[in-house]
Design a protein around this nucleic acid. Structure first.
Lengths: 243, 243
DNA sequence: AACCGTCATGACAATTGCGTTACAGTACGG
DNA sequence: CCGTACTGTAACGCAATTGTCATGACGGTT
């Protein structure tokens, strides 16, 4: 689920947006002031920032500049909400690093649509796969068990990734070789056994009684689906329906 | 240089846009009809598409749908230009996969700014990247270690910048070549190794035990994200220095 | 209980991947 | 026009990884 933070001093608009964003399924946090906006963002770690330019105590443009200079926050999309509609206002806002600039009054549904555009293209596949106390990060190619880093070889990692991303599905050794080793493999199917063994020795508490990777006698292997939940994948409905 | 194609039937607006886009340094191509728009795009391979919704012979919305379904064109940003300003028109346009929706009449400079946003990509970036005692300044193209200036070659700098700005993410040599050397590279992937070596000799205390650039055997390289701690921004002084 | 097919396990040799060095071509500034 | 710095390639050696085999354990069936 994506989190959005809002900085808006107008109480009516603030609650209207809060209501609509939450209804839309976004996590929401906000302030009715610009004071401490940077610290607030660092704490909340939002996926998108809605920013009124004319806040009573601080300038939204300055906040945007700070966000863009800040290492942790620089990549978070910023959308300006403002009554300032002049050409130069728009240009300045957009060139400061904002991702969109919406002039008040605006349609709530258009704002929602523009927010979703910012999220489009991100997270086509889940970055993080979780199963109980086991965690696999696709981008950093790392696996953690109870938070502790495990060292995996490339083949071990790819095999685990494949199984974890399709929990509950039983794969034959043939299928696993095709998927993990590639179609042009020249590998015995018993090799899969060895890699499952090596994985179990690393991730299972009791390798003799495997909790994660299950053997399905006569068929192959499968990842225990009772444990799995992947990071929610949120893609725009428009794009999803088009593909 | 980025190429933009325009579909717009109004001759005045067409030439106005052509003039301004070329003046901005974009390559330009366009049609005053929507007929054959897809083929035109496939031939021109634009980096961005400006699309009038109400073309005399075809519907811009349909063209956008086709673009989004088309394998080669699906990822090209589309910006609608239209006189249709109603709420539903906007929503439909945006949800069809357009990246922006600009209502006529509009300011040329705003259009230019919004085009540039599309090219800015997801990585809008902080000016200063820090990781432990290592500091990279993008604007002055300088790297400091414990405050001491290091001399970097252009390629070394770009590689370090790329890795530092995406800490924790593992990149294959292929990806690094694409990102740092450019798409039209004619370079062996082992070249990356040599540059990583050269970087390590400059920034690592013990190049044999790298703290910054980590090798991920079988995958590629990654910048150690454990070191990238953000520094608190002293809001008052920072804001003051921004003017 | 004996049997057979399937799976687990440990050890081994072959292979691959990577760090490193040295070197040739190229760009650039004086 | 020369020298210096930068860029990319080739080659070598070490160490981690990889895949196979032999063997033993297990499960189900007769």
């Amino acid at each position: 689920m994506k989190k959005i933070v809002l900085f808006e001093d107008d109480a009516d608009l603030y609650s209207l947006l809060k209501y609509n964003l939450e209804k839309e399924g976004f996590a929401f946090a906000g302030l009715q002031t610009g004071k401490g906006a940077i610290d607030f963002c660092r704490r909340e770690r939002p996926d998108l920032i809605l920013l009124d330019i004319m806040l009573p105590d601080s300038d939204g443009l300055d906040i945007c500049k700070l966000i863009r200079r800040h290492q942790e926050l620089a990549n978070i999309p910023v959308i300006f909400l403002t009554a300032r509609a002049s050409e130069t206002d728009r240009i300045v806002g957009l060139e400061l690093g904002a991702n969109d600039y919406i002039v008040k009054p605006f349609f709530i549904r258009e704002l929602i649509a523009r927010i979703k555009i910012q999220f489009r293209g991100q997270t086509t596949a889940a970055r993080l796969l979780r199963a109980g106390n086991l965690e696999l990060d696709r981008t950093s190619c790392r696996v953690r068990l109870d938070g502790a880093l495990l060292t995996m070889t490339a083949t071990e990692f790819r095999l685990l990734e494949f199984l974890m991303s399709r929990p509950g599905v039983v794969f034959s050794r043939e299928q696993l070789l095709d998927a993990v080793w590639g179609h042009d493999r020249a590998v015995t199917d018993r090799t899969v056994d060895v890699y499952v063994l090596r994985l179990r020795q690393k991730i299972e508490v009791d390798p003799a009684n495997p909790q994660f990777i299950r053997s399905v006698r006569g068929f192959g292997y499968s990842f225990n689906d009772a444990l799995v939940q992947s990071e929610a994948v949120q893609s725009s409905s428009a794009v999803a329906s088009l593909t």
